[in-house]
Amino acid sequence: MPERPAFDPRIPHPARVWACLIDEGGEYYESDREAAEEYKKSFPGIVAFARASRGFYSRALNYLLELQHDQFIDLGCGLPTRDNTHQRVQRVRPAGRVLYADVDPVVGLKRDALSSSTAEGSTDYAHVDMRDTDQVLAHAKTVLNLNRPVALLLSDCMGHLDYEEALEIVGRLTDALPSGSHLMLSHASDLDEVQRVAQEQYNAIPGGIPYHLRSVEKIAGLFDFDHLEMEPPGLMPWADWRPDETTNSVRTGYGAVARIR
């Protein structure tokens, strides 16, 4: 496995840049703010894009709660915001259990915000590289009952990996979860030329962590496992996946929820 990058506040990190863009709380550094501002100059639509991603996550999480899920793995969770996964879950399921996992050291410093819980439930944070699926699952066993269904949340994090790595991780994790579990996955597409140029500029920052925009076909490939079955409406642009009154018009990000058979 590649070594984890050393923490250097002078180098922007995706989780912290994202916190700048969605403006829902979270701590970041001057380097992150500057990277976010440069991205906005190259692609002014990035703020609406980031909020559309957050909107898909919110609607998908609500759907998973409607399916009676009370156990969640939020992998590549990013910095705490004003309303985190465990808070949303435990408002509906007070006994809900959530494991957060991320490799960003700043996320780890804020773990207290991710490990508070209701008395009935349980929440924890694991500082782990998502590529180390054995460690992800080992941590999950300390918080969740892996003999019962689990919802795995992969919100815009697979783009940080090579495609073959992403396929392997999705396959290994979903194969390890019991029948009746679900996968939620969202990913930015390569449909917008302006965004592609802006992303290439961001990816060129020395020491940074690139994000790979991908074709819709490749995003669909992340669900192409025999043990996964798409929930309606399938893989859709964020704006078209169970839209509500808060949904904006961004259609260059895609997401879906799939049942693990």
Rank of each mutant, 00 (worst) to 15 (best):
L21P: 15
E24H: 11
E24P: 09
G45N: 05
W18T: 07
D83N: 08
A50F: 09
L21M: 14
A35I: 06
Y100A: 03
L99W: 06
Q87E: 14
D74L: 08
R97F: 01
Y100G: 01
R51T: 07
S58Y: 06
D70W: 11
E34I: 13
L67F: 13
L67T: 09
S58M: 05
V98C: 08
E66G: 09
L99V: 01
A52F: 04
A48Q: 08
Y100W: 08
S42H: 15
F72S: 04
R88E: 05
V92I: 10
E37Q: 15
G25L: 12
E37S: 14
E38A: 12
A52H: 06
N84G: 00
Q87D: 11
L65A: 05
K40G: 12
R91F: 10
A35L: 07
A35K: 01
I73Y: 05
C77H: 00
V17H: 04
V47S: 13
Q90R: 07
D70F: 07
E24L: 15
F43E: 05
W18N: 10
Q90C: 00
L79H: 02
E66W: 11
P44I: 10
S53G: 15
Q90E: 01
Q71S: 03
V92R: 10
A35P: 08
A36T: 12
D83V: 08
E37L: 15
R91N: 13
T85P: 00
F43T: 11
R59S: 03
G78N: 08
I46W: 04
L75R: 10
D32F: 13
V47Y: 09
R59W: 05
